[in-house]
Write a protein that binds this DNA or RNA. Structure first.
Lengths: 350, 350
DNA sequence: ATTTTTTCCGTGTGCGCACACGAAATTACA
DNA sequence: TGTAATTTCGTGTGCGCACACGGAAAAAAT
């Protein structure tokens, strides 16, 4: 039934040790017998028994995780980490060693130092969330040169050598947001698209979410009646946002919906609440605490979750499957675009 | 670091064999030494190594799956099965044997025969989707008597001995449906709640979905302006439904939204399309093919997925964790209530 | 006191694999 | 031709556990 090393060895007329050396490419095997063994290996579809394998081998699988660190204000990046650890404890029996390399997402220099540390660690695989485009490309290229498989998470850097990308299709999520607002908004109204980021163009998913949002209306029957007002803010202080929104509301009337393209939607919610505009439909991203608060009291109508926990989880599982089981994943693992409202929130909070 | 049987044995001044006998409750150990060993087992927090365990043991884990069979018309029940098999292949290394016992959900007699077959199979665990309430209770009680752990899936029979329930909170899902329709519907309108089932009262989730739907409006600010019209149909032929709907539309005007409490929403969608009433907001359940068709062409606005695949998946994982790792799960594993629209459909289709 | 039965326990083997060690075969070199 | 260096390969051990077998000790029967 099951093909063991011993079976291969018998068939090839050699000993188990020799087959083992072929499998692990440890040399000390003549060209002739190596080829013969490889032939039989394929012929009998040999698949190593992972149980026996990890039981016998002493050294763990070293996985480096390179993502921004989290803080009380920036809680988001805690989730992928816990997803990774959850996956790790499920695969616990298989000796996996996680090493965190957490960088300051606002200091390029720090990121680059951390990439160096990762390489010094000589990991068996890397899971990384890219922020700085060019620097990440360089780092990934280094990984490729060293033969270290790497997974890109949350934002797709699209490096040709990457094992896979785990994350959302940002453009589709923009379309979903549009659909939700479309559903609620009357024909003859204006919709605000608010992007709040220091350097918006560095965050490609913000751009793609905007694209998706616009795309939706092209095919919509309502499109003629709807006007979309973009609003880009490069500071996320409430004072600044308040001023900008006040100005916008003075300029435009009939604003019936607002789409905030990232997790800063709570700032807009705060403004709407303070100015008694709760009837405006508000849609944004991410299940972080301030957003959940405004979701529960009805100011935010829907949140789209990036499912950071699941991203981390899937990333580690992918790495594991590749390294221990030699299964290569699909190049993109798109996370479902979950629509969260007050009513289904509970089952998403793990 | 890691505590092995040998460590326990040394500490207790006995041999590994004795410890083994204690762990597996195989007897042939004196009371005194057994208690001593058990004490040390706890003291050192012994956890068996599953790798070594399954490597050494010859017999597989036998899991019986008792669910309705699927057919071209009733595609739904294929999903939990494939979820179970997916989980199985992920845990493949651990010698798991799945045996299907598929029954005709419309013949109580067949269900009862199949429960008998399950018991004859002497499984190590049972995963069952209940349709017939009392009969399932009896069956579960039999399982309990034989010491076979059992999981209830899709519908919660709430047997006190069950290992866990994997499925949705139907009431919450009703509330979600209400929220979606509320979002789209103007203040002064009527909403139709359509339940299509031969014996509605046998399907507790239909009742609970209706409850949740009504609950929502109690707290809603709109509630005074909204009127909810219930409509129960005990045949699912299109002709029958068409007649009933036509009549309803003649009786009531200003119907702006329809909530169908199960997967038959495609029949209502067909009617709306045929009578050019696509502007009415339509929400229903399940990602089955006819529903997906009407979702894509815009007649159905939202579908709530029961995630049958994930239910099967989680059920098997739970069983595995319990039997191989002795981890007891939480009594209820609620599946998230996913809101599906045309725009995010793609990432949910596995 | 001897034999038989029963209770209790230790030893040994194997699951499939990784890896160290050393032996045999081959080659290089004097 | 003999010896050393090198390549190539087989054997053995252990990972942690399950389980069979058989032996010693204790209890019971003769």
């Amino acid at each position: 039934m099951k093909v063991r090393i011993k079976d291969i060895a018998d068939r090839a007329g050699v000993s188990a040790g020799t087959v083992d050396r072929v499998i692990h490419k440890r040399g000390e095997v003549s060209d002739k017998t190596r080829k013969r063994v490889i032939g039989i290996l394929k012929e009998l579809h040999y698949e190593p028994d992972i149980l026996a394998r990890t039981l016998a081998s002493r050294n763990p699988l070293k996985v480096a995780v390179l993502i921004p660190f989290h803080s009380p204000e920036n809680w988001f990046w805690k989730k992928p980490l816990s997803g990774i650890y959850d996956a790790c404890s499920e695969l616990n029996h298989f000796k996996i060693e996680i090493r965190e390399f957490l960088y300051d997402q606002f200091h390029k220099q720090d990121f680059m130092e951390k990439t160096g540390e990762v390489l010094d660690y000589f990991p068996d695989a890397v899971i990384a969330a890219p922020v700085y485009f060019q620097e990440t490309i360089d780092f990934f290229s280094n990984c490729e040169k060293s033969g270290i498989p790497f997974v890109s998470v949350n934002d797709n850097i699209n490096h040709p050598g990457q094992l896979t990308y785990v994350g959302q299709d940002s453009r589709s999520s923009g379309r979903v947001a549009a659909k939700l607002i479309d559903f609620a908004v009357p024909e003859d109204s204006r919709i605000l698209v608010v992007s709040i980021a220091k350097d918006k163009d560095n965050y490609s998913h913000i751009l793609r979410r905007e694209e998706g949002f616009r795309e939706y209306w092209v095919n919509s029957s309502k499109s003629q009646g709807i006007e979309i007002i973009p609003l880009s803010l490069d500071k996320d202080s409430y004072q600044y946002i308040k001023r900008a929104l006040t100005e916008t509301f003075q300029t435009y009337d009939r604003i019936a919906g607002i789409f905030v393209t990232n997790s800063r939607v709570y700032q807009v919610a705060k403004y709407l609440q303070n100015t008694s505009r709760e009837d405006i439909s508000l849609v944004g991203y991410d299940l972080i605490n301030p957003n959940i608060k405004y979701l529960n009291n009805g100011v935010i109508d829907f949140l789209i979750s990036q499912k950071p926990h699941e991203q981390g989880y899937k990333a580690l599982v992918t790495v594991f499957n590749k390294l221990k089981m030699n299964k290569k994943p699909s190049p993109e693992q798109l996370i479902p675009i979950d629509i969260i409202c007050k009513e289904n929130l509970c089952c998403y909070q793990v």
